[in-house]
Computed example of a mutant assay.
Amino acid sequence: MNLKKYNVGALKYVRPKFISTLSGNVLFSPSIPNEIIADADTTRFDKSGLRRDHRNVLSKAVPYKTPHTWIHATEKYQRKLYGLYGNNSNVDPKICFDSVIDRAKLDKLDRIAQPYNLQQLREIVNTQEANKLELIKARENGLRIKLNKLEQWKSELTTKIAKREAAAQEAKERKERMVEEVRRHFGFKVDPRDERFKEMLQLKEKEGKRKDKEAKRKAKEDMMVAKLVEKMP
Rank of each mutant, 00 (worst) to 15 (best):
G83Q: 10
G83T: 05
L84E: 08
Y85L: 00
G86C: 05
G86S: 04
N88G: 07
S89E: 00
D92Q: 04
P93E: 04
K94T: 11
I95F: 10
I95C: 02
S99Q: 06
S99D: 15
D102F: 07
R103C: 04
K105C: 06
K108T: 08
K108D: 04
K108S: 06
L109C: 04
L109A: 08
R111S: 10
A113M: 11
A113I: 03
P115Y: 05
P115R: 06
Y116N: 06
N117Y: 04
Q119Y: 11
Q119R: 05
Q120V: 04
I124T: 01
T127I: 07
E129M: 08
E129H: 12
E129A: 09
A130T: 02
N131K: 07
K132M: 12
L133G: 00
L133K: 14
E134A: 12
L135I: 07
L135Q: 11
A138F: 12
G142T: 05
G142M: 09
L143C: 02
L143Y: 08
I145S: 10
K146L: 11
K146Y: 00
L147C: 05
L147Q: 12
K149T: 13
Q152V: 15
Q152M: 15
W153I: 09
K154S: 15
K154E: 15
S155I: 13
L157P: 03
T158N: 15
T158A: 15
T158F: 14
T158D: 15
T159G: 08
T159D: 13
I161W: 08
I161V: 14
A162V: 07
R164I: 07
R164Y: 13
E165D: 10
E165S: 12
A166N: 11
A167C: 06
A167P: 02
A167R: 12
E170P: 00
E170V: 07
A171R: 04
K172T: 08
E173T: 08
E173K: 10
K175E: 06
K175L: 13
E176G: 00
E176L: 13
M178Y: 15
M178N: 10
E180V: 07
E180K: 14
E181R: 11
E181W: 11
V182H: 00
R183F: 02
R184N: 14
H185Y: 15
H185V: 02
F186E: 00
G187N: 06
G187M: 03
G187T: 02
F188N: 05
F188M: 05
K189H: 11
V190W: 00
V190D: 00
R193D: 02
R193L: 08
R193C: 09
R196F: 06
F197P: 00
F197L: 07
K198C: 03
E199F: 03
M200V: 01
M200F: 03
L201T: 00
L201I: 00
Q202T: 12
E205P: 01
E205C: 03
K206R: 14
K206A: 03
G208M: 12
G208S: 05
G208T: 03
R210T: 06
K211A: 14
K213I: 06
K213W: 03
A215C: 10
K216L: 15
K216S: 09
K216Q: 14
